[in-house]
Design a protein around this nucleic acid. Sequence first.
DNA 1: CGCACGATGCGCT
DNA 2: GCGCATCGTGCGA
Length: 206
Amino acid sequence: MARLARSFFARDTRVVARELLGCTFVHILPHGARLSGRIVETEAYRPGDPASHGYRGHTERNAPMFMRPGTAYVYFTYGLHFCFNVSTEAEGVGAAVLVRALEPLNGVEIMQANRRRNRAAAMLPIHALCRGPGNLCKAMALDREHSGVDLCGHSSALFIEPSGNPGGRVRASPRIGVSGDEAAKSVPWRFYVAGNLSVSGPAPNK
DNA sequence: CGCACGATGCGCT
DNA sequence: GCGCATCGTGCGA
């Protein structure tokens, strides 16, 4: 299947965030296994946005946000979690879409193993495997070594496949976990598929 | 059910 | 040092 071209990501971050819903995010592991899931929740982080890592300018960590649209930006936070983003807008512009949740499609058993804390722990329900940005990275085996990877490259292990439609009603809401600036907290730049069990936050998401 | 908090690393002031 | 685009647990109602 085709992968999304750079032109898809080289647009307004809010549009990209909304249109990513329903697309399939794929990670081909080194041994060839395919992990994938349908994107059901995203957030836009835009130029001039106080909540964005790019707000205070270019640093070593956020460098992928300023790279070509379609570049993966994976960062480490709270001392234990990774979050996966895709850069947007244009090269030199600090903007990205945070992918917050997937509905698992391929590689579910591997995801189960990636998420399991220890051998005795109970198996998680499929819809919970990639619910929330930290959980998504754990299940999809993503970490800082994937930051800077070009999702539009022909041979990259990470890419996104296009889709017809999200298969549900798309809703917008304020972003989750944003603190500080009041305007940044209230702006509706989180997008999700209403009612999908894999969407994070208080269930059920209507 | 909701809320509080601890875990735990590191980038930034 | 502070605080973070988080998550799971444990507590009280």
